[in-house]
Design a protein around this nucleic acid. Structure first.
Length: 836
RNA sequence: GCCGGGAUGGCGAAACGGGUAGACGCGAGGGACUUAAAAUCCCUUUCCCGCAAGGGAGUCCGGGUUCGAGUCCCGGUCCUGGCACCA
C-alpha cells in the first residue's frame, strides 16, 4: 500500500474508531447470537446463498469479499424487511487445485486445508458478514462427503451413473491425468512433455437425459440473462435429422469392384448403413462424400484391403494426439477408406473418408460432407480434391453452376438449386420436405442433438471423496451399502499420482481390499475419487441440515427453506457448477426426495474487480489483501467502498485513493449522529430529502444497485451538513438504519448511542412517507426547437399553461422564441419544448 | 468463427418506460481555520471562445427515426468475458 493516503483520524476518543467498534460488535453478535437463524421457528424464511469459496493458502481474495458483501447486504436488507434470513458459508476444499498446491509445498492436504480454513474463517469474521457460523461446512469433512457418496448411490440406483471407457489427457513424464486446461499447445503445463491420449474406464452421470429439461426450465428462472444464455449455449440444442447412407458392393452400380471387406478380410455381403447427423438435410443433393471419426466402430468394416494400412496409421496417429490440440489444429487431414456409399437423394456413389475433424462424441460420429455449403467440408474438399456441388443459391438467382471459391452458408432468403423436385424451395421448407421424402424409405428421421456430454465424475487423484463402489469377482459391480458410508479417504503419505493411470489410492492395498458386501468374497474398492463439482452440486441442501447426522437434508427443514431464494456468485460458474446443481436437484426431485426441481429461484452474477485499470494477479503483485485494508480503514469502510466502486453486476476498478471518500462519508455520519441535537424540530427540507433518500435506497437494494444507493446516502449526508449545520436526531436516526446494511458495526454502535437496546437489525426499515418527500416547486427544462435554453420553477403539478407563462416571462428564454410556436410539447414535471 | 458484456470529464462512475448529460466519489485549483502542517469546512472544476454577460461544441465513428437520442433503428471501429472443427 502507498503511504500517501488519508491517515486514520480517529486517535481521539470522540472520533470514529472502527477497530474498537468492530471488535466490540463482532464479539457482541457472537454472545448475543444476533446472526443465528432460528430455522425451525423463524417466519418468512429467506435463504440468501453465496457461492462458497475454495480455501486457498493465499487467504481470502478481495473478489470473494466483493461477492459475499453483496450477498450480505441483500440478506440484511431482507431481514430488515421482516424476513428470517439464513446466510450460511462453507468451504469447497476438495479438488485438484488443493492437491497440486499441497504437492508443490510438500504438505499433506489433510494438514494444509484445516489451516487454510482457519485463516479464511478468521478473515471472514472480520468482514462483518451476517453468517450463522453454526451451519459452517467443509466438503472435506467425512460428515459431509458421506452424503456426497450417498448422492452418487442415488444416481447409481436410478441408472444415472454408469461406467465406460473414455479418453483422457495423459502426461507420460509426470505420469498423471491432466485436465484440458493443463494442456498448453499439446504439452503438459508443468513439465512440457508431449501429452497423449489414454483410455480409462470412468464413471459418468447421464446428465444428457436431462438436457431438454435443463434447457426448457431456463425460461422460467429469474437468473441473470448472461448466465441463462451461457447455459443455453453449453447445452447446445441442434434440431436436425439423422440420415442413412448405404454402403455396399458397388459393382452393380458402377461396374467397379470396390468390395468392402471385414476386418479379417472376409467378403461383406451384408449392406452397411452409415448414419450421419445433419442440421442441413436440405443440402443432401450436395453431399459429395462421407466422413467418419477415426474411432468410428464401422471404420474397420468399411476399409478396403488396399487402404487398410493408411487407415490404421491415421487412426493410430489420431489416438496419440492429445485431446486439446486435436480439436484446435485446423488443418484438415484424413484418409480414404476405399469404399463408396450411395447418396440416397442423388443415387450417386460417394467416397467414404475418415478424418479427425469429425468427433466421435457428437451426433453419430459421422457426417455427410457438403463442401458447397459448409466451411469445414469445403476446406477438406479443397485439400483432397473432392467434388464440390452447389445446391443453394441466393433468392431469385438462376441455377448458378460452376466452381465455387468458398462455402456458401447463407440460409435466409435463399432457395435450393440442383436438387431435383426440391429445387426452388426455401431452406426451411426443404429441410422438412426432404426429411419426409427420405423417411419414406427409412433413410431419415428428425432428431434433436445436444452438445452437452455426460458428466465424467471420475478423477484418478487422491484429494476427493472415494467413489462408493466395490468390485467383486463373483458379484461384479456392487454399490457400497448406505449404512457403510462414508467410505473414508485414508491418510496416505505418498499421494502423488503415478504411472499406473489410476488413483494413488490404488497403491493402498490395506484400504482397497475389502470383503464383498453381497457375498463376502474377495473384492476391491473403486480407487478413483469423484469430481469436486459433485461436492458443490448439493451443498446448498446441506447447510440448513448440518445438525442432522442421519440424513443429508431433513425433510421438514428442507421444505421450509428451499429452494434458495437468492443466490449470488461469479459468472465463471455460469455453466458447470450451476448446471450440475440443477441436474442434481432434478434427480433428487424425480427420486421423490425433494419437492422442487430447480435449486435457485433467483441467481445474480456479480462482476469482476480489477485494480487501477489492470487485472489482479499474483505475478503482477497487485492483489488486494483484505486484511491490510480492513486494518487501515475498517471493515465497514472496506465493505462500503467495494459496493461503491462500480455497478455490482458489472464489477469495477479498485482504486486505493478512492477509499478515502467512503471513509470521509462514514466519519461525517459518525459526527452527525454523535453530535445530533434534539432541540426544536428537524428541518422540513432536510426531512424531504430524507424521505427521497429512503425511497431511493429501498428501490436500489433489491436490484443490487449498491453504488447508487451509497451515492444517495452521501448526497443526503451533504444535505444534512450543508453549511456546517448541526444535524437533528430525527434527520439522522433513519439514516443509521439505511447505512446498516453496508456498515453494520458502525450502525450498531450509533444505534446504541441513540439509546436503543435491541440490534439495529431487529429494528426494521425506515418507512417512506410520500407526502413528506413531495416537493412544492418543480424545475422544468425549457427547450426552444429542441435546444435547452433554460429552466423555470413552477408549483408541483402545474400544467402546460403555467409552465409556458413562466417560460415566456423569462427574457433569457423568451428571446429565442422568435415566432409563434408551431407546436408545444409538455412533459409534466420535466420539460417544455416550443417548436418554432 | 459463434454467443454475451461494454465504450460517457483528468479518473471511478450516474442518468426512471427517449425528456436539463456528468449525480456521488477521487484527483486538481482557490479560500477559511492554524505560528505552521495535517485533519476539517467552504467555493470552482466537460471542452472551446470571452474580463464578463453570454455563446458554441459535446456521451467511440458514420447514417436514420423523433419536437427531442447516451438511451431506439441500420452500418462500422475498438475493448472485454465465455465457447470453439458440435456437422
Amino acid at each position: 500500500m502507498t503511504e500517501t493516503i488519508h491517515p486514520n483520524p480517529a486517535e481521539d476518543s470522540v472520533g470514529y474508531d472502527p477497530t474498537a467498534i468492530e471488535r466490540k460488535w463482532q464479539e457482541r453478535w457472537e454472545t448475543r447470537g444476533t446472526n443465528h437463524t432460528d430455522l425451525a421457528a423463524g417466519v418468512r424464511p429467506f435463504y440468501a446463498l453465496m457461492m462458497f469459496p475454495y480455501p486457498s493458502a493465499e487467504g481470502l481474495h478481495v473478489g470473494n469479499l466483493f461477492a459475499f458483501t453483496g450477498n450480505d447486504i441483500y440478506g440484511r436488507f431482507q431481514r430488515l424487511q421482516g424476513h428470517t434470513v439464513f446466510e450460511p458459508l462453507g468451504y469447497d476444499a476438495f479438488g485438484i487445485h488443493s492437491e497440486n498446491f499441497a504437492l508443490k509445498v510438500g504438505t499433506h492436504p489433510a494438514d494444509l486445508i484445516p489451516r487454510n480454513i482457519d485463516n479464511f474463517r478468521r478473515q471472514l469474521k472480520r468482514a462483518g458478514l451476517m453468517i450463522d457460523w453454526r451451519h459452517e461446512l467443509s466438503t472435506t469433512d467425512p460428515d459431509y462427503y458421506k452424503w456426497t457418496q450417498w448422492l452418487f448411490l442415488q444416481l447409481y440406483k436410478r441408472g444415472l451413473a454408469y461406467k465406460k471407457g473414455a479418453a483422457v489427457n495423459w502426461c507420460p513424464n509426470d505420469k498423471t491425468v491432466l485436465a484440458n486446461e493443463q494442456v498448453i499447445a499439446g504439452e503438459c503445463e508443468r513439465c512440457g512433455a508431449k501429452v497423449e491420449q489414454r483410455f480409462l474406464e470412468q464413471w459418468f452421470f447421464r446428465i444428457t437425459d436431462y438436457a431438454g429439461r435443463l434447457l426448457d426450465n431456463l425460461d422460467s428462472l429469474d437468473w441473470s440473462d448472461s448466465t441463462k444464455q451461457a447455459q443455453r449455449n453449453w447445452i447446445g440444442r441442434s434440431d436436425g435429422a439423422e440420415l442413412s447412407f448405404r454402403v455396399q458392393d458397388l459393382e452393380e452400380l458402377t461396374g467397379t469392384a470396390t468390395i468392402a471387406s471385414g476386418e479379417s478380410g472376409e467378403y461383406t455381403a451384408e449392406p452397411i448403413d452409415v448414419r450421419v447427423f445433419t442440421t442441413r438435410p436440405d443440402t443432401i443433393f450436395g453431399a459429395t462424400y462421407l466422413v467418419l471419426a477415426p474411432e468410428h466402430p464401422l471404420v474397420g468394416a468399411l476399409t478396403t484391403d488396399e487402404q487398410r494400412g493408411a487407415v490404421l496409421a491415421y487412426q493410430q496417429r489420431a489416438a496419440k494426439q492429445d485431446l486439446v490440440s486435436r480439436k484446435v489444429s485446423k488443418e484438415k487431414t484424413g484418409v480414404f477408406t476405399g469404399t463408396f456409399a450411395v447418396n440416397p437423394a442423388t443415387q450417386s456413389p460417394i467416397p467414404v473418408w475418415i478424418a479427425d475433424y469429425v468427433l466421435m462424441e457428437y451426433g453419430t460420429g459421422a457426417i455427410m460432407a457438403v463442401p458447397g455449403h459448409d466451411e469445414r467440408d469445403f476446406e477438406f474438399a479443397k485439400v483432397f480434391d473432392l467434388p464440390i456441388a452447389r445446391v443453394v443459391a441466393p433468392g431469385g438467382a438462376t441455377v448458378p453452376h460452376g466452381p465455387m471459391d468458398a462455402a456458401y452458408t447463407e440460409s435466409e432468403n435463399v432457395h435450393l438449386v440442383n436438387s431435383g423436385e426440391f429445387t426452388g424451395l426455401s431452406v426451411a421448407e426443404a429441410k422438412k420436405a426432404i426429411v419426409v421424402w427420405l423417411a419414406l424409405n427409412g433413410h431419415a428421421k428428425a432428431v434433436v442433438n445436444y452438445r452437452l456430454h455426460d458428466w465424467c465424475i471420475s478423477r484418478q487423484r487422491y484429494w476427493g471423496p472415494p467413489i462408493p463402489i466395490i468390485y467383486c469377482d463373483h458379484c461384479g459391480t456392487v454399490p457400497v451399502p448406505e449404512q457403510d458410508l462414508p467410505v473414508e479417504l485414508p491418510y496416505v503419505e505418498d499421494f502423488k499420482p503415478d504411472d499406473s493411470g489410476v488413483s494413488p489410492l490404488a497403491r493402498v492395498e490395506s484400504w482397497y481390499r475389502v470383503a464383498c458386501p453381497t457375498c463376502g468374497g474377495q473384492a476391491r474398492r473403486e480407487t478413483d475419487v469423484s469430481d469436486t463439482f459433485l461436492d458443490s452440486a448439493w451443498y446448498f441442501l446441506r447447510y440448513p441440515s448440518t445438525g442432522f447426522s442421519d440424513t443429508p437434508f431433513d425433510e421438514t427443514i428442507t421444505k421450509k427453506w428451499l429452494p434458495v431464494n437468492s443466490y449470488i456468485g461469479g459468472n465463471e460458474h455460469a455453466v458447470l457448477h450451476l448446471l450440475y446443481s440443477r441436474f442434481t436437484t432434478m434427480v433428487l426431485h424425480d427420486a421423490g426426495l425433494i419437492d422442487f426441481e430447480e435449486p435457485f429461484t433467483k441467481f445474480r452474477a456479480h462482476g469482476m474487480i480489477i485494480r487501477e485499470g489492470a487485472k489482479m494477479s499474483k505475478s503482477r503483485g497487485n492483489v488486494v489483501n483484505p486484511d491490510e485494508y480492513i486494518e487501515r480503514w475498517g471493515a465497514d469502510t472496506f465493505r462500503t467502498y467495494l459496493m461503491f466502486l462500480g455497478p455490482y453486476e458489472e464489477g469495477g476498478d479498485f482504486r486505493d485513493q478512492s477509499i478515502a471518500g467512503v471513509r470521509r462519508f462514514l466519519d461525517r455520519l459518525w459526527y452527525s449522529v454523535v453530535g445530533a441535537t434534539t432541540d426544536g424540530a428537524p428541518d422540513a427540507g432536510v426531512i424531504r430529502k430524507l424521505h427521497q433518500t429512503i425511497k431511493k435506497v429501498s428501490s436500489d437494494l433489491p436490484v443490487l444497485s449498491y453504488n447508487t444507493a451509497v451515492a444517495a446516502m452521501m448526497e443526503y449526508m451533504n444535505t444534512v451538513r450543508r453549511g456546517e449545520r448541526m444535524a437533528h436526531r430525527a434527520e439522522v436516526e433513519p439514516l443509521v438504519q439505511l447505512v446498516a446494511v453496508f456498515a453494520p458495526h458502525l450502525a450498531e454502535e450509533l444505534w446504541e448511542r441513540l439509546g436503543h437496546v435491541e440490534s439495529v437489525f431487529d429494528a426494521g426499515w425506515p418507512v417512506f412517507d410520500a407526502s413528506l418527500a413531495a416537493e412544492e416547486m418543480q424545475t422544468i427544462a425549457v427547450q426552444v426547437g429542441g435546444k435547452t435554453r433554460g429552466t423555470v420553477q413552477v408549483p408541483t403539478g402545474a400544467g402546460q399553461e403555467a409552465a409556458l407563462e413562466a417560460a415566456m416571462a423569462d427574457p433569457s428564454i423568451s428571446k429565442f422564441v422568435v415566432a409563434t410556436p408551431k407546436k408545444v410539447v409538455f412533459v409534466p414535471g420535466r420539460l417544455l419544448n416550443l417548436v418554432i
